[in-house]
């Protein structure tokens, strides 16, 4: 296999494996609401917590605690009220599966 044809195959592979099903696509889009502040590419140290790659149940617990008022917040308690329980679960699941380059580089 030459480098060039391998590259073409890889690009094709990257394409087919990333074609998102509607539900996964919606989850990805919702999670992209979070990344202006919680970008996995954000520099460290950072006043805003990193959330990509954390376990989904931990992310979801935290989001629900913001909504119930059990976790202190400046803005997150206002933001989470814009999403249903189902949407918060989709967001948590997607973020948990997102690679965090800061962890990859360790």
């Amino acid at each position: 296999m030459t480098g060039k044809s391998t590259l073409a195959a890889l690009c094709l592979l990257a394409g087919t494996t990333h074609a998102a099903a509607p539900a996964a696509m919606h989850a990805r889009n919702l999670a992209a609401n979070c990344t202006p502040c919680h970008s996995p590419d954000a520099p460290a140290p950072n006043a805003i917590p990193r959330i990509a790659s954390l376990p989904a149940d931990r992310i979801l617990q935290r989001l629900q605690a913001f909504r119930s008022g059990n976790a202190p917040a400046t803005v997150m308690h206002q933001i989470v009220r814009g999403y249903s329980d189902e949407q918060l679960a989709l967001i948590a699941t997607h973020l948990a599966a997102s690679p965090d380059p800061a962890f990859d580089q360790r």
């Binding site: 202006p36 502040c37 919680h38 954000a42 206002q78 989470v80």
Partner: peptide, 25 residues
């Protein structure tokens, strides 16, 4: 959903500075 700060704070000053770096990333 949504809302405003209850008052200006240093904590939000830190978040504001982090916001600028993170959205750029």
């Amino acid at each position: 959903a949504g809302g405003l700060s209850s008052t200006a704070s240093e904590e939000e000053g830190h978040y504001a500075a982090a916001w600028a770096r993170n959205i750029r990333a």
